[in-house]
Amino acid sequence: MAATVNTRKLARTMLMPAVIILFIWMIVPLLLTIWYSFQNYNLINPVNAGFAGWSNYKYFLTDPAFFQAFANTLILTLSVLAITVIGGILLGLLLDQFIYGQGIVRILVISPFFIMPTVAALVWKNMLMNPNYGIFAWIATRLGFAPVAWLETFPLLSIILIVAWQWLPFATLILLTALQSLDEEQKEAAGMDGANFASLFVYITLPHLARAITVVILIETIFLLSVFAEILVTTSGGPGYASTNIAYLIYHQALLDYDVGGASAGGVVAVILANIVAIFLVRLVGKNLDA
């Protein structure tokens, strides 16, 4: 299409609002965060204000809470990734078979993804994990074990289970979609050549899924690095810092301790960590854009 000067001008005018708005959204709050991170700025102690140098960073990065929150963030993210990707592949393979009532099965499996995080977390916390009346306690007593106070005894594991339940449907749906695009004839040809299920899976299915798996890992990572609502309504990060991740730690410093400077330093750290992950994702999607 031979674009005239006019259409080009029009195209640019149509693009500009989105670019300008996103640019402001990206740059202004980030610059403010960096600015605050070098200030002594506490909302309940306005007297002690001024340039703080690197002290906010020093304080944040050497705080034992940071180490624990960092470790918890990693454990949470990696565990949920492992559960959802492996579970998603298995479920995807299962749902790709001939099943009576496949449409309904799909709807049941995908449903947790549409449940808002606060509902998911509160339902799990109370009706499933409660040690006195919960379903898990009932199952435990039926099997002859003592009921467990899940959120007090295994706070991080409990949150991992809740978050994995929310994200397993996403992984399943993406991987199932990818599986369905696998050429049936290719599989049959391999089957006739005497390939069994295991070698079919390793040499044909898995390579075909590689791109979808990468996408699932990277998209989920963005969201998993900043899990927040599930922690807020279940454990509030506790006991101690046992289930505090970086997102919750920063929230705690900012809105509960009113430490604007410290929370901002934490915010900058979170942005840097997320960017390391982001670089990979942008590259990956960029490649797919060419394809």
Binding site: L22, T33, I222, I250, A254, S264, V271, L273
Partner: peptide, 23 residues
Amino acid sequence: ILMWMLSTKMMPAVGVLVPIFLI
């Protein structure tokens, strides 16, 4: 431009919680 727009989505919300809250 598309890549850059995507990258803005990578910004963790908690990284800009403080300034947005104050604004």
